[in-house]
Write a protein that binds this DNA or RNA. Structure first.
Length: 449
DNA sequence: AAAACGGTCAACCGCGTTCCG
DNA sequence: TCGGAACGCGGTTGACCGTTT
């Protein structure tokens, strides 16, 4: 667990770098490359630890570092990506050529975070309101004042932390910029939600949930047909999907650490949709979807470090989950419940009429070899969604997606300027997918649905 | 004039992950 | 397979500077 700081060695300098040190480091790397950072200081004649040299190089001396103020475009990228990725500064930095993670982190903490808090908290910065140039803040005002956005941000944020408010605002921005239509989001979310269900089932069953409510959920989930999302939501809320209804195998109630929906305010106790309206501002289906996609399109496991902002771990892991992952899966289940509780009716559900009850698969059992999804809408494999997840769905050709009846139909995908919205999602995945400095990396693509 | 305060940002610290012998 | 070294990341610190009181 950790180790002694490398700079504790006697005789090594700390603190600000002098021009002479910079020159030595620069000259050495330019002629030799950095190779091993640990060996570099000695070879370059520097009384610094390798770590300090690496930081100085990557954050300051590197020739491709971009200096100066962040542009509006860069601000927007940071805002968008932060809404999706959270404090994963290095990941964000890969999409801003010339900017370091440290620089972006500092900029967020000293500029953007503060600004967003002021906006979402209804407190206008006088300095901002007096400027006549169209700043990003003014642009944001237009977004926030638009008829489409007002319902989403309507004064229901008091329960959120400032941090979450900043996130909400970023998400509002993103959804506005994208012109993504709620109806389509919901339809899509319905698909993803349905995709998750088997694994939720598995997760619950794996941990032998003892709650009668959960047992009921397990018994009904695989056979019940919900005619309407309202009926489904009502059923879930009235029966099982309440924060206290799920306990881990340790007997501890779990609330997702990454969810911004607090279970402490009683909003989940009401089964009526009206009881959750206050949270529609936060539950942005497209972002939830995107977070799911992020989890599954990543070629490497998502960092387990705290504060990533993503929903950690994955509930749709393969069977070889570590205890930590299992715990995270439970948290994911909780997150799904909270989403449903917070926004009943807005989440579509996949009907399961005529399907066989779900069964658990162990790592040793042979994997079904059924064909791929015949009515494939998403190119799941290319997005890195594991085959074992798809298998749960492949047999279910009879699935239908029901969406929120009263959703606001504002248009169709074809009206969005992209083929079935493909461009939007492809762009988003490009943003959050392989970094731009890896030209050979494969970017997940989205096919029609 | 000077102390207090607040903002900025380079650098550090500690921890987790990856690499490699 | 294991353990140590190296690397990378995100949070935090502290020096510096401008503004306010």
């Amino acid at each position: 667990m950790g180790r002694a700081p490398c700079c504790d060695k006697i005789g090594l300098r700390k603190g600000a770098w002098t021009p002479e040190e910079d020159q030595k480091l620069l000259a050495y790397i330019q002629s030799h490359g950095h190779g091993s950072w640990r060996a570099l200081p000695k070879q370059a004649g520097l009384l610094r630890c390798g770590k300090s040299c690496r930081l100085r190089w990557t954050n300051y001396l590197r020739p491709d570092i971009k200096r100066g103020r962040f542009s509006l475009e860069e601000e927007q990228v940071i805002s968008h990506l932060h809404a999706i990725l959270g404090n994963r500064w290095s990941a964000i930095a890969t999409h801003l050529p010339g900017r370091t993670d440290n620089e972006i982190k500092n900029y967020w903490n000293t500029h953007l975070k503060k600004r967003m808090n002021m906006q979402t908290g209804g407190i206008r910065d006088p300095a901002m309101s007096t400027t006549h140039s169209k700043t990003s803040t003014e642009t944001l005002d237009l977004v926030l004042d638009s008829p489409d956005m007002k319902p989403l941000i309507s004064s229901k944020l008091s329960h959120m932390s400032q941090w979450d408010s900043a996130r909400l605002e970023a998400e509002v921005r993103l959804s506005h910029d994208s012109q993504l239509k709620m109806q389509d989001c919901e339809s899509l979310l319905g698909r993803m939600q349905g995709l998750m269900c088997p694994k939720i089932h598995n997760s619950l069953a794996t941990h032998q949930a003892t709650s009668p409510d959960c047992k009921e959920l397990l018994s009904q989930r695989s056979v019940q047909m919900f005619q309407t999302p309202e009926a489904a939501s009502s059923h879930l809320l009235n029966n099982c999907w309440k924060p206290t209804s799920f306990r881990s195998h340790e007997g501890v109630d779990h609330i997702s650490p990454t969810s911004t929906l607090s279970s402490l305010e009683g909003q989940h106790s009401s089964p009526s949709p009206a009881g959750s309206e206050a949270h529609t501002g936060y539950v942005k289906p497209e972002h939830f979807i995107l977070k799911l996609l992020l989890q599954n399109s990543s070629s490497s496991p998502i960092s387990h470090k705290q504060g990533s902002g993503l929903m950690h771990g994955t509930a749709i892991n393969g069977p070889n989950q570590s205890p930590w992952q299992q715990n995270q899966s439970e948290l994911k289940v909780e997150e799904m419940k909270l989403l449903n509780a917070a926004s009943p009716g807005s989440l579509g559900l996949i009907s399961t009429e005529g399907q066989q009850p779900l069964s658990l698969r162990s790592s040793s059992s042979p994997q079904p070899t059924s064909s791929i999804i015949s009515k494939s809408s998403w190119d799941f494999p290319s997005m890195g969604i594991p085959p074992e997840l798809l298998l749960d769905f492949r047999d279910r050709t009879n699935t239908t997606c029901v969406t929120q009846k009263n959703s606001t139909a504002l248009g169709t995908w074809s009206e969005l300027g992209g083929l079935d919205g493909k461009d939007y999602w492809t762009n988003m995945l490009q943003l959050v997918g392989p970094p731009c400095n890896q030209p050979n990396a494969t970017v997940p693509t989205i096919t029609k649905w």
